[in-house]
Design a protein around this nucleic acid. Structure first.
Lengths: 124, 124
DNA sequence: CCTCAAATCAGGAATGATTCCTAATACAAT
DNA sequence: ATTGTATTAGGAATCATTCCTGATTTGAGG
């Protein structure tokens, strides 16, 4: 595992939430100023293929990477874009049951309004 | 609703499965030779926003449109790309329960190997 | 029927996230 | 050290999708 790949993994593991490749890149260049965006994409792709990290396709077509590859659902606020993990794993269990034992990857995303955005809307 | 929009909707409703914008475009130009791909995208987007049709983001980042907007899961074969609907709607019900009453859109996708591809692999 | 404003269109250029390419660099093992 | 292999940086290319523009259609009111 190259220095770059280790750094990319560490940045994602240290992050609390979900990051775009560009965000990982911005963090990474603080420690490896010459690292390139292409390398970040390549390493994120490998880590994902190796099952080290997760990848989430957003409704706008771009992706964010997740520090864990555990199958779990996501709630995304259609107003502010905040992404929350669904802790309840019965959803994932059920999907695994339905998809069968050849399931490789899965994605569960629900768009909703987060409590903060609900409040600011109802006030105005 | 314009002639173009009606045609786009009808093509999708008549299709058995899921179509890309390009596929809808190819079908549409048989009846409206001058229709443009941009119009197909625009009309598909409107129909989706109106809740008339569904939209599904594939793992490769492109989209397919669905003749129904009903929330349901999808199984996609990682070998041949075939997309199947998950008929069991308990998944969708549960997701609705978790996401709350502000849920707007949702997407459930699982990648697996379809029976056909399992067979052809185990034979070879 | 006309007319006019608003909506929609066709066609093509622009966008932007992601991937690909190439020559240069680091690494590991003998 | 030296050879072979993998990885890199940087930038060009890709491609689905969106945006832009001037032309066309629509339909409501006179």
């Amino acid at each position: 595992m190259s220095r770059q790949m280790e750094l990319v993994l560490q940045i994602l593991r240290d992050s609390p939430g979900h990051m775009t490749a560009a965000q990982v890149f911005e963090h990474a260049r603080k420690q490896l100023p010459n690292i390139s965006l292409g390398t970040v994409y390549r390493d994120l792709g490998r880590l994902f293929d190796d099952g080290e990290i997760g990848k989430l396709l957003l409704p706008d077509g771009s992706s964010v990477y997740d520090r864990t590859s555990d199958l779990h659902g996501h709630l995304i606020c259609s107003q502010c874009g905040k992404i929350e993990d669904i802790e309840d794993n019965s959803l994932a269990d059920q999907l695994r049951r339905i998809a069968g034992d050849t399931l490789t990857k899965a994605e569960i995303i629900a768009e909703h309004l987060c409590p903060d955005c609900q409040n600011s809307i109802s006030k105005s």
